[in-house]
Design a binder for these strands. Structure first.
Lengths: 311, 311
DNA sequence: CTGAAAGCGCTTACAG
DNA sequence: CTGAAAGCGCTTACAG
């Protein structure tokens, strides 16, 4: 910037002014400055700017796993929306590990992100609260949480599971299990509990996955697809021998070869909404503190069918 | 930091020293400082640090589409590896649009990333060169480029396509088409050319996709899976009526329901290697300027079969 | 309309 | 071992 100022014969303050129209600048001066910028290939240093303005125009997105299409979609939409407002996004992966999670969040705090979005969080995590306490707005996507300062974008998982159970019970299923990944700490959501509630309303209870269920409700579509793969490799046909229901409705769920019955969450819209919520909270200098409920609906495809009668 | 210094009765320089062991500090002082940090919940401001050190410890990853598992995997591995070295990663999405691409890269330059990784780049892009000219090291993944300052992690696409064509021709295919997404500008790679070369070596040429090919070679697995879906919805069975070959070997390609014959690229290793290459270039203060060739191999699964004899 | 100066929160020689 | 001071590249009152 000093170079630009020197080359165009003005002060750095004036260069700053032409760059941000914060104060009127004569046309002639503006032209000279712009020309110098062009000749020098000058690109403003955002880190100095961030330091001075005490705002970085960057968001953090903390996801357990970039390979889950639901999370990837949210991250993508956030990035897209943020970019429109001149915000950048720092990607932090947690692998669903609490230690990595807090590590990552600490790094985001150090880098002074203006806000953060969590499409998931490890069970029992107090991380969002810590951020909130530091005055950093946060919005969570696809799950609920208690803190009123939190921005929340979610679907009604109880209503969704009610639809799932109605569908399954209507086809004679009574032995229904919940399936999640055993690989990591679970992230927090109400899906198992929502399933249990819908079953209870019909005098049923969830059965363990190894206790010959006739249907599985999976915590997400990735798990559901892996389950179908495993079942069929073991000779258990889906849906002839057992039905499988996913959650999310990732694009592949509609693939003819996959054809997964699942609960559709509007991932793109959720990501976009979360970004907008966060961005406007940042602009207003306050917490997001709002809750948006999105529609979720059962999409019936070919992975569910009538319960097999016991031999 | 001033607060910490005041509370522990030392100067800010000393606080800096205990934080980074750049100079010896007495045990007693260290203890007091650490305690003050803890009591205050102090977290060092990385942006000030970055400004002063003229290095941000952040990498940019520029991808066309976070939903492509190959790109997501590379991004994830880069993030993981970078995180180990205390680097953060800025995610920039291009949607395969040259304007967005240069926009995003400009933003990365403004934010003074220490280096950038491209798992793909729009055709004809001069972006990497511009970065290189500014002294920013860049490494590209899964394609080739001419600039000797570039770090390159790729596979031998010609050898891979040779295997593909040998497999296909061995099953009687002579009408082979290349399939890519028509949605966006293509990103740059040698796959179409590699296919053509392997065909030419056998006196064949690629046929247009609408000229009743008996086999399709797709630019990646996502396209291949979409193609299978489309073909089968139109009543064309795969592989009975037409064979389909992908590229990448994303995890789903091995799913029993998908079962895609494809060329395996070691995505995780490529991402990790790219990150390491970039990180060590940054540490050394020079360009990556190295080329690593990774193995690619044909994985034969169920989406390819004997060419259907014309009726 | 333009310039000089302070200050954002750090690091890094340099003294002591 | 510790402190004082300069400076990283900006923005923002404040004068003029």
């Amino acid at each position: 910037m000093t170079d630009v100022a020197r080359r165009s014969g003005v002060s750095v303050g004036t260069v700053s002014n032409v760059l941000h129209r914060t104060a009127p600048v004569s046309d002639d001066t503006r032209r000279r400055v712009l020309q110098a910028i062009d000749e020098l290939g000058y690109r403003q240093n955002e880190v100095a700017r961030s330091l001075r303005r005490r705002a970085t125009k960057t968001l953090g997105v903390v996801i357990p796993d970039a390979l889950n299409p639901f999370h990837a979609t949210v991250a993508l939409q956030v990035e897209r929306r943020a970019h429109r407002d001149g915000f950048a996004v720092l990607l932090a992966e947690t692998e669903n590990d609490p230690a990595t999670e807090s590590d990552q969040v600490r790094a985001l705090v150090g880098r002074r992100v203006d806000g953060v979005i969590f499409p998931a969080v490890t069970a029992g995590s107090t991380i969002p609260t810590e951020l909130l306490d530091r005055g950093i707005p946060v919005v969570v996507v696809s799950f609920e949480a208690a803190d009123p300062r939190l921005g929340i974008v979610h679907v009604d998982e109880y209503a969704a599971m009610e639809q799932v159970v109605a569908h399954l019970v209507g086809m004679g299923h009574e032995r229904i299990a919940f399936a999640h990944s055993g690989a990591h700490e679970e992230s927090v959501d109400n899906r198992p509990e929502a399933l249990a509630a819908a079953l209870r309303a019909r005098g049923l209870v969830p059965v363990p996955g190894d206790d010959s269920p006739t249907a599985f409700c999976c915590t997400n579509d990735v798990i559901a697809m892996a389950l179908v793969d495993r079942l069929e490799r073991d000779g258990t046909a889906v849906p002839d021998n057992v039905s499988v229901v996913g959650f999310d409705d990732i694009p592949l769920a509609a693939h003819r070869r996959i054809d997964l019955t699942t609960v559709r969450q509007p991932a793109e819209e959720m990501g976009r909404t979360a970004a907008e919520m966060l961005l406007s909270a940042i602009a207003a200098g306050e917490h997001a503190g709002r809750r948006v409920l999105m529609p979720a609906e059962l999409v019936v495809r070919g992975s569910t069918g009538p319960a097999r009668r016991e031999a």
